[in-house]
Design a protein around this nucleic acid. Structure first.
Lengths: 216, 216, 216, 216
DNA sequence: TATGAATGAGAATTCATTCAT
DNA sequence: TATGAATGAATTCTCATTCAT
């Protein structure tokens, strides 16, 4: 009411940004839990504590919202990958750390797995449509290439390893186990998510990757 | 119309069995393409060339239909796994063959990947509900255990390898690549499904698995 | 239940046809009252006394329903036009009858006016999309041409009258008055729909058309 | 931002008037294109390059905005009609000129036709609610009455012509053709808006009106 | 005067499922 | 066994309108 507490523009902008961020987080959770097809705009609004109409105001429709949430998910993982500093470690240690990182990240971000699944069910349409996502080409590949080269030079790593293939393999070892843990647990009759099982899995994966790369 | 051309009992039974099989195949294709959530009963009926009502007659509801299709998918892959006769080969050759089989099977049965995804998005509810599926515990695990033991005994394989972990790893290496190929292709700007790419991937996976298991 | 009262196929077909006809009539009334944009699918269902879903089952969506209703409206008016037998009358009498017919038909079928308006607001998209409607080219034009020729030959009508133009004029004289009667009544402060006013209008229109066409 | 560059009162008033005029023009275009029901407040704001909220500030709601736009449309046509000076011409020439004027005005102001349609779909509610519009009773009627009287006196026009009926007829001849040109063009398979067609229509209409009114 | 953020009530459409035969 | 007709409960999305500054 008074002129003093006006300061409206930036503050309202902040509100807008905040609302969008809240919606995005709610969408992430909903998509994580139900996938793109199973997600409900109503529930996203409810999770966000905001009016459903506002989601359309900011994100146009469900598809675009998913795309925005997916982009955010990529930004998040890439940001963490940036922190890794693998090149400060000895090659073998760096590889072990990468396996661990991948495993931990997937464990803590199940939404990443689910959204990746949804995106692929829809033939990555949401990524094709997003320049941003397409440019999200992981910096890890480059880092991994250097790592492999270094290991090869110091005689510890085998040569001829394609960093992209290795990256995909590292991801795949964690991903399959975590993404399908319900089915696997049911079929094998063991709880694959117990602390012990998780520990064994991580050890195994490190063994596989190092066993493959290390000479001897 | 007339009572006379009513089919004999066995014939009608044959028709019924045939209809069910047709529906199941149609469901498999639909679930493969759209996932459980995205699948449409109407489209399944259309694919099957049969009345929608008939699906309900035989399979009760969408969930049960999915479960039946999933069970069928497991039966199919298990049946092929049975044929593998890995124990007729030398341990290393057997492992290579298993990697190849897994890769080829996933390549030729994309529905298996999609349905596995859907099943896990729903926390394997459809497997919990299916004694059949739970008992589908792959005979491969046992075979793999023997294989590893044999390799260890003849000095070619390292010891201490958990067959279940190895099985999951072999599956994961193929699965991640194929299930997410759209996203990966988009992000890396390469067609991961070209003949060349597929060939490289298979080689890499064999290298990883053998590199891990083989001594020296 | 008993085998005898089965006779299902034709009867059910009759139901289907009946349902579609009911929906079409309800749609016609709704479109007449509110136009295409203002019509409500809910209200159409209610008017029809049928489930809203059924409308989509038979007509796909609102646009297609409007198109179907429009086609029906054209079929209806063409059917009545067919009955006119103008060529049995003397030319001047035939023209008078045509003016009267047009006036009466529009009076009794206000939905025709409203739907024509809606169709044109949408740039006749619904007619372009309907071969049927495009072929609905009134047989009256041909009849009118013969009429004019006959009148010219017997010396009562002027020559050089384009039947299409005349047809449009006859329609326009009734149409404008009836379609805009609310506005006109309000502005001129007279009830243009009173029996007296309607009578005067009809006389005037006959005078205009005959005054134009007749020699002397 | 600072108090100093606050505009003086008259200037702000000028801005306000300008904004209202801009909104009104934008509304006219939107209503012309989509009708009252199909018009979107968002689009009107966009067309106007002004904030949607401002429309509500000045015009209260969509209905009132339509009413204002309609009143403006009437003001515009009446203003042009005022300029006609029909009484300076010989009766027959004056009539011809009126037919031409009506045709040209409708051609150049399609929004007038669309808005008239919308107004009548809503039973002229917007005119009932507007004293202004009700008083917009065209001065032409009076002019036409004098014209007809003059023609009758000089022996060129028939007697007993109701000026209101004639006015409605003149309008109707143009209106039907233009308002429904899409449908008519589609059904008759001719472009009724080509230069040639338009020319023919105008000639025909003049012939009809003069043919009706002129003696001999 | 002017604006971006936010909302509630609806509207079209979809979908699994059941009815009736 | 097989089928077309019919339905109720969502679900996405739209739209005029108001809030707060």
């Amino acid at each position: 009411m008074t002129r003093d507490n006006a300061a409206p523009v930036e503050e309202r902008q902040r509100d807008a940004d905040r609302s969008q961020a809240i919606i995005l987080a709610a969408a992430r959770d909903e998509f994580a839990e139900y996938g793109l097809g199973g997600a409900r705009m109503d529930r996203i609004a409810e999770r966000a504590g905001l009016n459903k109409r506002l989601i359309y105001y900011y994100f146009e429709d469900k598809e675009k919202l998913f795309q925005a949430a997916l982009e955010q998910a990529y930004r998040d993982i890439r940001a963490e990958e940036q922190q890794l500093k693998l090149l400060d470690l000895k090659p073998a240690e760096a590889l072990r750390k990468l396996v661990e990182f991948t495993w931990d990240y997937y464990l803590q971000h199940p939404e990443f797995l689910t959204m990746l699944n949804s995106a692929n069910l829809h033939r990555a349409r949401h990524i094709q449509g997003s320049q941003q996502a397409r440019e999200m080409n992981s910096p890890l590949i480059e880092m991994l290439a250097q790592l492999l080269e270094r290991g090869r030079k110091d005689g510890s790593f085998r040569g001829g390893v394609d960093p992209l293939q290795l990256y995909v393999s590292i991801a795949g070892l964690s991903y399959f186990y975590l993404s399908n843990n319900h089915t696997l647990s049911a079929i094998f009759g063991r709880d694959l998510m117990s602390a012990k099982s998780r520990h064994e899995r991580l050890n195994h994966m490190v063994d596989v990757i190092l066993g493959y790369v290390l000479i001897n």
